[in-house]
Design a protein around this nucleic acid. Structure first.
Length: 951
DNA sequence: CGCTTCACG
DNA sequence: GACGTACGTGAAGCGA
């Protein structure tokens, strides 16, 4: 198979030597036989390593042309129906074996071998059935297993290989073990039973006696019929009494040869594997010796084993994106000819069977609304192979016609309930990976239909973890970037503007092409991007932070938060009335009517008509700058009342339009609550962002603004609980820059701003002037932001020279902070990104820009990113743990909102205190056990009926 | 659709 | 010494 142009497996190669690997049996035996071995993250891997080496050996050193790895699908099989005690006294699976099961499957995938399993059947039954198929086609079979239950299969053309002892098992070995030939093994087992599988057998008869009896009488049936002839009285009696039990035992140990298997033998044809995928797997599991051996072997050979179709690829084209070199893939062959519309049950069943067999499926939902709370399912698309995909319409309606007609009836499609019932086992199958792009949406939609989509992968988040700020992560962008595919755009099928329709009105053929393509492209992106997580050492960020966050955030969005609409209406009226009054006053003071909301008109009034201040043009557009800072200054210097009036108007107008008015329209008619949407892949630092509506910028800093928070309320009989980290970024700065004095201050719970003030300005903490403390606080913020004299001066309204002196004084006291900043910039320049404590990469494109302004801008961003990003990692870790912590404590609390360093919960009144305490504990311990931080992380909780008072 | 302003951490 | 700034977001309104 070293020829890249090897025929695809479908080109049915006649099997000559079929290898059937008993995956489930192997892992148990290897676990007990091999010494313990763990990855550096603690994951046990002894059985996985043994298994991997065995597979490699098998592919390298045998003449296998067909290979499959076979697993037990579930614990319940037809044998439980026959004998309910079957396997009942099996001991619990050891804890450190459990995580190795999925790794074994990964190993199989890394070698590009098929995983076979089937509900209701043990691996042994599948092996028996496939072995027969192979022999029938004239092939030899080798069963890789040391399980004695499989020895009954040995005959001409079928042998076993013991992977633990590395030796063949043939008739001679069976004779040695059971004292009979392989065809009589089941009769012996029926008599002697099996304590590990709880096969009863006949009491008092062991292997030795059983073999003796079977050899004497020829078979179990003959023995039982002629039991009266047995000389020993005790033995005769037990056999006569337990004949039925013996027959049941035989049924239990007899393997099924006629399992209605779904996958033909031809699918096992050896296909070769993608070396990079295998290397990634080996590296991730730290199988260094194996990795070296494999690499050496492949290098020696010159050629590499190759997945047909996936390679060879044209050389990649290099494209420069924002000063970073990113590979732009050459276009992949892409066509939509094989996209299929599914409108009957048989076709759907086939899709589901194929996806189950493939072990992974790209999945996408189409709905009539982007707002989860209001969305109804319109269709579902699946893809398991490039250029393939199917679309299952479930909610397409007819197109409304006008008076002249032109409408159409709802098209023929399967009923929603039927489709969901059929898909549910697949979507919840723990052995089938569901791959989505921004799958949070699909998780939420499925949750609304009682389906827990799992396990999942998200190509958007994989891309985000890999290349964060380098580019956007929407599907269209990634398809173009990595696959060279120009996808059908949403607007292409739904139209835009006035003619735009919801997806349920899109004709089926257009819908099929659009939806199936989304799934197809998602699957192909997964192929390219997922292995890079391993090779670029970003698996942990993705697997422990980003991916587990998906269902958690989906649940928060679905929960929403209650908003008192009447309170908002009152506020809107109040703000509106006062705005109108202020507007009249402003116009009177200006001597003319103009649009206060227009900076251009306002600037002309202030600086040309009234000639206030010394008029300053700013900005490259040449317009006057009329920001709040300018107006505040103008109010003082000019003594004119107008600037303050404008400031007041602006505040109220902002509160009204952005909050009290807009929020009312955002209340879902279905739930009566406001459901924000969190963007998981939007920021350069790892933070979330909130939109539609943005609930992360609800006012709090001013008294008027705070009133809006009063409208965010708890459900009747419930309380809102707000828990926020205290100065988390500053604490992280002390930790990450390793400044003993600052760390000590936090450990001693000292007022950090007062400490900074006393250090920088040399004043005692006792009886400190509040203005001095305020300046120190600004300096501390500046540290987090990558301080600059200009910025600090602007913040404090002091001359730049003075700010410069403050910074110098600060660095004199804390030189470690300056060193840390310099180190961070250096790292950013060298590698193009900085990292958080948890390994997240924050890219800083432009850090080497020759424009000094842009360069220093990126330098400040580089200084801030590890701090902001680590804080984001920590609160995300807390969020991931929260649902489980509540469940374990039997609390009915729900997490509703995240505001960067704050989490908002809703809990029944009686559980509020306990919820607050637990949430605080989870948040404070969120860095553990991955990172031990020497500065305490403190979270503070508040409980009230509304958000204003809870915070 | 870009710009300005301003709400939050 | 250039160059124009505090770090990270999203939404509304203006005006071309």
């Amino acid at each position: 198979m070293n020829n890249p142009a090897a025929p695809a497996p479908e080109a049915a190669v006649k099997p000559r030597h079929v290898y059937l690997v008993d995956g489930s049996g192997y892992i148990f035996r290897a676990y007990h036989a091999l010494p313990p071995l763990t990855r550096s993250d603690g994951t046990p891997t002894n059985a996985v390593l043994g298994f991997t080496n065995m597979l490699w050996k098998l592919l390298e050193e045998t003449d296998a042309d067909h290979v499959a790895v076979i697993f037990d699908a579930s614990r319940k099989t037809f044998r439980d129906e026959i004998y309910k005690e079957y396997k009942a006294n099996r001991t619990e699976t050891p804890e450190d074996l459990i995580p190795q099961f999925p790794l074994i499957r990964e190993a199989v995938k890394a070698f590009n071998l098929p995983c076979i399993e089937m509900e209701g059947y043990e691996a042994d039954d599948l092996i028996a059935t496939y072995a027969d198929h192979a022999v029938a086609e004239g092939a030899d079979v080798t069963i890789v297993s040391s399980d004695k239950d499989l020895m009954q299969l040995i005959r001409d053309g079928i042998k076993m290989w013991d992977p633990m002892k590395n030796r063949p098992i043939g008739a001679a070995e069976v004779q040695e073990k059971f004292g009979v030939s392989p065809d009589k093994v089941i009769d012996v087992q029926a008599l002697c039973g099996d304590s590990t599988d709880n096969v009863p057998g006949v009491r008092g008869i062991g292997v030795k006696t059983a073999a003796e009896l079977i050899n004497a009488y020829g078979s179990l049936e003959a023995l039982l019929e002629r039991a009266g002839e047995i000389k020993q009285p005790k033995r005769r009696e037990t056999l006569q009494e337990n004949a039925a039990l013996a027959r049941i035992s035989k049924q239990l140990v007899t393997l099924k040869h006629d399992v209605p298997v779904e996958q033909p033998l031809s699918g096992f044809a050896k296909r070769g594997f993608d070396p990079e995928t295998l290397f990634g797997f080996l590296r991730h599991n730290e199988f260094r010796t194996t990795l070296t051996r494999v690499q050496q072997k492949l290098a020696e050979r010159g050629g590499v084993q190759v997945v047909p179709g996936a390679a060879p690829r044209p050389a990649p084209v290099v494209k420069i994106i924002k000063n970073q070199v990113t590979e732009k893939a050459a276009p992949q062959a892409h066509n939509r000819e094989n996209y299929q519309l599914i409108t009957d049950e048989a076709a759907l069943a086939k899709c589901i069977a194929d996806a189950t067999y493939a072990r992974q499926v790209a999945f996408d939902t189409e709905t009539n609304s982007q707002q989860v709370a209001d969305a109804a399912l319109v269709g579902i698309s699946l893809s398991i192979a490039p250029n393939q995909g199917c679309y299952i319409p479930v909610g397409h309606s007819g197109i409304e016609g006008d008076l002249l007609g032109g409408g159409s009836a709802a098209p023929n499609q399967l009923p929603l309930a039927k489709v969901l019932a059929m898909l549910k086992p697949l979507l919840e199958d723990p052995a089938v990976l569901k791959i989505g792009h921004s799958i949070k949406f699909d998780v939420a939609i499925m949750a609304k239909h009682g389906i827990k989509l799992a396990p999942i992968d998200d190509t958007m988040l994989i891309s985000y973890v890999l290349e964060g700020a380098l580019h956007a992560h929407n599907l269209d962008e990634l398809a173009s970037l990595h696959l060279g595919i120009d996808t059908i755009k949403y607007a292409d099928v739904t139209g835009t503007g006035k003619a735009q329709v919801t997806f349920d009105k899109v004709p089926l053929d257009k819908a099929r092409d659009y939806a199936a393509e989304d799934a197809d492209v998602t699957l192909r992106l997964h192929h390219t991007l997922k292995p890079r997580l391993v090779t670029e050492r970003l698996s942990t960020v993705y697997e422990t932070i980003e991916r587990p966050l998906i269902p958690v955030v989906a649940a928060m969005e679905l929960a929403g938060i209650k908003v008192d609409i009447n309170e908002l209406k009152r506020l809107s009226n109040d703000f509106g009335g006062r705005c109108a009054e202020l507007e009249r006053e402003v116009h009177k003071l200006a001597g003319t009517e103009f649009n206060i909301g227009s900076p251009k008109q306002l600037g002309e009034i202030l600086f040309e008509k009234l000639k206030l201040g010394d008029g300053g043009k700013k900005g490259k557009t040449g317009a006057y700058s009329t920001g709040a800072d300018i107006l505040e200054e103008l109010a003082v210097t000019s003594g004119h009342p107008l600037p303050q009036k404008v400031l007041d108007w602006r505040q109220l107008s902002k509160l009204k339009s952005t909050y009290t008015d807009a929020l009312q329209t955002q209340i879902s008619p279905n739930t009566g609550r406001v459901h924000t949407s969190y963007a998981l892949a939007a920021t350069s630092t790892g933070r979330l962002s909130s939109n539609d509506p943005n609930l992360q910028n609800i006012p709090i800093r001013t008294e008027e603004g705070r009133k809006i928070r009063h409208a965010f309320v708890a459900e009747k009989g419930h309380k809102l609980i707000s828990v926020d980290y205290s100065q988390i970024e500053l604490r992280l700065a002390a930790e990450m820059a390793d400044i003993p004095a600052l760390k000590q201050a936090f450990q001693d719970n000292i007022d950090i701003h007062a400490l900074t003030a006393s250090q920088v300005f040399g004043v005692p903490v006792e009886g400190m002037d509040p203005m001095v403390r305020r300046r120190a606080k600004a300096i501390n913020f500046g540290i987090i932001y990558g301080i600059s004299p200009f910025g600090l001066a602007a913040q404090l309204g002091i001359p730049q020279a003075e700010a410069k002196a403050y910074i110098a004084a600060y660095f004199a006291r804390f030189p470690g902070i300056r060193d840390y900043m310099e180190r961070t910039k250096q790292i950013a320049r060298e590698q193009g990104y900085v990292t958080t404590l948890f390994g997240r990469r924050c890219h800083v494109p432009g850090i080497n820009d020759k424009n000094p302004a842009r360069k220093s801008f990126m330098e400040r961003a580089a200084i801030n990113a590890p701090l902001q990003g680590t804080a984001a990692d920590i609160i995300k870790r807390a969020m991931v743990r929260m649902p489980e912590a509540f469940a374990k404590a039997k609390l009915d609390a729900r997490m509703l909102l995240q505001v960067h360093d704050e989490l908002v919960f809703e809990a029944p009144e009686a559980q509020a205190e306990e919820t607050a305490d637990l949430a605080r504990k989870v948040m404070e311990g969120a860095a553990l056990p991955a990172r031990q931080i020497s500065v305490p992380l403190i979270a503070e909780a508040g409980i009230a009926d509304n958000w204003a008072e809870a915070h």
